[in-house]
């Protein structure tokens, strides 16, 4: 029962903060709302036995990435946006498409299984599911190659960021 209560609380805060992200005028406020969403999700991760992911969600996402966001927001010091939303038909189409997409997603998620067989009962969780040790083992055995490729991706990103920041473009 405690899980249900916690889930409900996290879900509500996450959605509420999410709406704040897209409708607050001040970019700093938007960023702080995003931090709220990230924290709520981190809570849900714990409920789903993903303790390690929850931890790096807070450390990396809410910590490092969001600091970067805030840093840029304050560096650019954009004056209050007027108007807030895109002018013209693009805005209307945006809302419309998003609504259709949402309905379709709901349809897919909530539609009765149909002729499909009911999902098999969840297998009992192995001990240490979602722990750093288990993640690390999977990451350095099965997923070693993608893991190494990721390091190259990050290197490229670092170089790209440096080059973009140093030269004059656009």
């Amino acid at each position: 029962m405690a899980e249900v209560i916690l889930f409900t609380a996290f879900a509500l805060t996450a959605v509420a903060f999410a709406l704040g992200v897209i409708f607050r005028r001040n970019a700093v406020h938007c960023a702080l709302h995003l931090v709220g969403v990230l924290l709520s999700l981190s809570g849900m991760f714990v409920l789903l036995n993903a303790q390690f992911i929850a931890a790096i969600q807070i450390l990396v996402y809410a910590g490092a990435i969001m600091v970067l966001f805030l840093f840029v927001v304050m560096l650019l010091n954009v004056k209050g946006e007027t108007p807030l939303l895109t002018p013209g038909a693009a805005k209307g189409f945006g809302f419309l498409f998003a609504l259709i997409a949402f309905v379709e997603l709901l349809w897919i998620v909530l539609a009765p299984g149909g002729e499909e067989v009911a999902p098999p009962p969840a297998p009992p969780l192995v001990p240490g599911f979602g722990s750093p040790a288990a993640i690390g083992r999977a990451l350095y055995t099965t997923w070693l190659f993608p893991f190494e490729v990721t390091s190259i991706l990050l290197l490229v990103a670092v170089i790209g960021a440096v080059v973009l920041a140093k030269r004059k473009f656009f």
């Binding site: 895109t86 997603l105 709901l106």
Partner: peptide
């Protein structure tokens, strides 16, 4: 999944209608 769909849609709206590149 419902919460995920809702958050995704909110994000989508943000991408499509906000002017600020940061947001």
């Amino acid at each position: 999944q419902l919460v995920a769909a809702l958050l995704f849609t909110i994000g989508l709206v943000g991408v499509l209608v906000r002017r600020s590149a940061l947001v």
